[in-house]
């Protein structure tokens, strides 16, 4: 019995290490998020106080945006079959409309909150930095291909 429990423990460890390796996408997402922070920090030259106020709210915004996009992907995956019934097509269109409305609402809500933690010129720089970061990633993708 004593030996059996040891073997079970070892097997659990092996299984867990496989599970640990099974999500490369999550790592890439974290890497992009951390690169985004480095990029924005450099572009905005945030002071220590600004950074302390800004990053928690920005991270919260990114979490919610990420959740919206994940839900959209999951829903669309289910609906984007070869043949759609009228009902499914309507649900797909509704989902897409909801997504775009929610994304815009989220953007508005959080950019209003960013106004409280950053001077307005830095907020304008943030919008530009987000665009530049996107282009930087696209450039890397283009160079790779």
């Amino acid at each position: 019995m004593k030996y059996l429990s040891k073997y079970i423990l070892i097997i659990c460890c092996i299984l867990l290490s496989f599970a640990a390796k099974a999500q490369p996408g999550a790592d890439k997402k974290e890497q992009i998020a951390s690169l985004r922070v480095a990029f924005i920090t450099k572009e905005l030259s945030l002071t220590s106080k600004e950074a302390q106020n800004f990053w928690p709210v920005y991270n919260e915004y990114q979490d919610k945006l990420d959740a919206l996009r994940t839900t959209r992907r999951k829903e669309n995956k289910k609906l984007l079959a070869e043949t759609l019934t009228d009902q499914e097509a309507e649900k797909f269109v509704d989902n897409e409309t909801d997504f775009r409305v929610n994304e815009a609402n989220l953007y508005k809500q959080y950019y209003n909150r960013f106004k409280q933690c950053l001077p307005i010129k830095k907020l304008a720089l943030l919008i530009k930095a987000e665009e530049d970061f996107k282009r930087e990633l696209l450039k890397q993708l283009k160079d790779k291909n």
Binding site: G25, K28, S34, A38, K134, L137, L138, Q140, K144
Partner: peptide, 26 residues
């Protein structure tokens, strides 16, 4: 999170950035 200084994502794929782009970016 590790502090990132180098602006390079290893093995970047279209799926990693598709949420970020719109057609005007192209």
């Amino acid at each position: 999170p590790a502090q990132n200084k180098a602006m390079q994502v290893k093995n970047l794929q279209f799926n990693d950035v598709k949420d970020l782009i719109s057609e005007t970016d192209i």
